[in-house]
Amino acid sequence: MGMDNTTQLTQNTALIVIDVQKGWTDPVFPPRNNAAAEENIAALIDAWQTAGRPVVFVRHDSPKPDSPLRPGQEGNDLQDFVEQRRGKGGGPELLLTKTVNSAFIGTPDLRSWLDAAGIRQIVVAGIMTNWCVDTTARMGGNLGYEVIVPIDATHTFDAAGPDGRVLSADELARATAVNLHAGGFAKVVATADLLD
């Protein structure tokens, strides 16, 4: 995809890792896209921690009784490759929990944490591309942050619309990238662009 030269990461650019939890592997979910998502997320966490930049780990505590992501279930846990990286970085770290799509509506309050640290630029990665990643990116843009979304460090699932027509995970990811870009919510890049 190739970033243009106007995006420079700052020393305190925060990486927000959204909902990379075990429950997403449950067979209840339809087919997904982007088999490389986890590898790209891991690479971003490693790069951020090595650079001493801030990392926010977000966990979705689903209030729905039938959700694989509800608290008290193994599906609520962060996936091993993420859990194993917690606490390994030289920079500030936050674990945030939420019950809605946006990481800006969670505990502790993300906006307060970012603002207290003087952070104005955020990179949003994780699961799912068109739900929690998209919602967090849009809200971040609306709140005045410079938002970057490495779209290949996210994944989603096939989903049906109100007419019953199914869009594939790839189609939904493409639409999300277009919406974020065209709407000016975020700069959409490839993971490799952020690792240079």
Rank of each mutant, 00 (worst) to 15 (best):
R111L: 09
R111K: 14
R111I: 04
R111A: 13
S112P: 00
W113R: 03
W113T: 04
L114V: 13
A116P: 00
A116C: 00
A117M: 10
A117G: 02
G118M: 01
G118T: 05
I119R: 02
I119Y: 09
I122L: 14
V124D: 07
A125T: 10
G126L: 09
G126D: 05
G126F: 08
G126W: 04
I127W: 07
T129N: 02
T129V: 01
N130Y: 06
W131I: 14
W131R: 00
W131E: 10
C132S: 15
V133D: 10
V133G: 10
V133C: 13
D134Y: 07
T135I: 09
T135S: 14
T136S: 15
R138Y: 14
M139Q: 15
G140N: 10
G140K: 11
L143T: 06
G144C: 09
Y145G: 04
Y145N: 05
Y145D: 10
V147L: 06
V147P: 00
I148P: 12
I148Q: 08
I148W: 09
V149Q: 05
P150N: 09
I151N: 05
D152T: 07
D152P: 09
D152I: 01
A153F: 14
T154K: 02
T156G: 15
T156A: 10
D158E: 08
D158V: 08
D158K: 00
G161V: 03
P162C: 04
P162I: 13
P162L: 14
D163R: 13
D163V: 14
D163A: 15
R165V: 15
R165C: 02
S168C: 03
S168D: 02
D170E: 13
D170Y: 02
E171Y: 00
L172N: 01
A173P: 01
R174D: 09
R174M: 02
